[in-house]
């Protein structure tokens, strides 16, 4: 399809270790359309951050084994030279992190760091770059941007640093912004401001955003489409409203039920998923969710492909013939409320 700005096919990332090769990502495939906010959700160790690092080609470990294609506007990123990639990174595809201090250097002012990016990628002169940086800082909601320009990262609060990093990431008007847990370390009131900011970005610049998060609340606030990852695979994906309303994979369902509700009756006991996510080297054969799944049956000893259910896809044998009984139970439960 032509309106896909990013197409990832069969992305597999493994590492050679003393205990033999360990696969972190297995056959991850997805697309990102222009102007779309795609959310990647999953628990720790599910491979969501590894996916974004692979796209940015930031996996530098010599023991890494990476295969698959990542096409950005038709160009296969793994095939580019380091020099070509450097031109692209920060200019076409930018990234923001959970901890802004990983992206900002403490030895330069934040203004200098934003301006430098534009001088290198866009060839702007020092004066113009400074002016644009100040404008950007102001747009990010940083009070007194002229003064903020000359401050060092440690002068700023966590929320302000996050804004400065976002200003830097979007300074060259990238086509894709990858945001890895951008609000996890922030307080809710500041988180709400940053989520507003990301939505403004899409509206104003038409940027595509890949938002990596473990927070279903964040997903429901801003995502268009959702990918759920478990144990290095995408186990379900679909439009946000479909996926949150009618999860097809038992893991997605379990994940959503585990979150204490903010409205309505408080459950006496929270529904929870037994056990914990498997470590990458110790993933079970077949469906890796099988040991924790209340619906597992004989078929689950094989790896389930992504089955289509209406407009969403789920890697579960229960979804082979469309929605299953537990889906209907859930619907009844909802109407009973």
């Amino acid at each position: 399809m032509s309106d896909n700005i990013l197409e990832i096919r069969d992305l597999t990332v493994g590492f050679r270790t003393e205990q033999g090769p360990v696969e972190i990502l297995k056959g991850v495939s997805f697309d990102v359309k222009a102007g779309e906010i795609v959310s990647v959700v999953g628990e720790s160790g599910s491979g969501k951050s590894m996916t974004s690092l692979a796209v940015m080609r930031l996996i530098t470990d010599p023991n890494a084994m990476i295969s698959g294609t990542i096409r950005y506007k038709g160009r296969n990123l793994p095939g580019l030279s380091a020099r070509e990639m450097r031109k692209l990174r920060g200019r076409q595809i930018a990234m923001i992190f959970q901890d802004p201090m990983t992206a900002l250097t403490p030895v330069h002012t934040i203004g200098w760091q934003i301006a430098e990016q534009m001088r290198v990628h866009l060839g702007l002169g020092a004066k113009v770059a400074r002016k644009r940086s100040v404008e950007l800082l102001g747009k990010m909601g940083i009070p007194d941007p002229e003064r903020a320009y000359d401050r060092y990262p440690h002068h700023l609060s966590g929320g302000m640093r996050q804004r400065a990093m976002i200003a830097m990431a979007i300074s060259c008007d990238p086509a894709i912004l990858i945001a890895d847990e951008p609000t996890t370390a922030l307080d809710v009131t500041v988180q709400a401001q940053i989520l507003d900011l990301l939505q403004d970005l899409r509206r104003e610049y038409g940027s595509s955003i890949i938002l990596i998060t473990h927070d279903m609340g964040v997903v429901s606030t801003i995502a268009d489409r959702v990918l759920v990852m478990y144990s290095g695979r995408i186990i379900e994906h679909g439009a946000k409203s479909d996926l949150l309303d009618k999860p097809q994979h038992p893991y997605t369902l379990g994940l959503m039920r585990s979150i204490p509700p903010m409205t309505g009756e408080r459950p006496r006991r929270l529904p929870s998923i037994p056990g914990s996510p498997p470590l990458p080297g110790k993933r079970p054969e077949g469906c890796s969710f099988r040991p924790r799944c209340e619906f597992s049956f004989s078929k689950c000893s094989a790896v389930p492909p992504l089955y289509r259910c209406n407009e969403q896809f789920a890697a579960c044998f229960l979804a082979e013939h469309g929605s299953h009984q537990w889906q209907r139970n859930l619907a009844e439960e909802r109407t009973a409320k």
Binding site: S157, Q191, M262
Partner: peptide, 22 residues
């Protein structure tokens, strides 16, 4: 409370009271 992004209250959510700054 109104700043909490919640997955279960898309419909019933009260309007957000926006706070400025940190």
């Amino acid at each position: 409370i109104s700043s909490v992004p919640s997955h279960d209250s898309i419909m019933s959510k009260s309007p957000r009271i926006k706070l400025q700054g940190d």
